[in-house]
Amino acid sequence: MQPPGGAPFEHAGSVHAVDAEAALQNARDVYARRGEAVNIWVVPTAAITASTPEDVGPFFDPGNDKPYRHPQFYSVPRGVRV
């Protein structure tokens, strides 16, 4: 679902439906009764490719050993706001 105001899509939940059109209507009725959404995507569960819990280490690891991707890695002269 995409909330109003241009925020990115966020997963809301699951529905059961016989086809995509019914899934869209069910999703609106179940998850968007109070203006929570301006856009809805529905995707068959079987069409989702996901990482697995076992991946947590190896798959995401490269993110942790590259501190030079963070601003704190770089020093600036004392007293200067950068």
């Binding site: 529905v15 059961h16 995509a20």
Partner: peptide, 20 residues
């Protein structure tokens, strides 16, 4: 009725019924 309609539509379009 919903299942029959979905099956009919899927047959017409030659695709498979989506189950979300």
């Amino acid at each position: 009725a919903a299942a029959a309609y979905a099956a009919k539509r899927a047959a017409e379009s030659g695709g498979s019924a989506a189950a979300a």
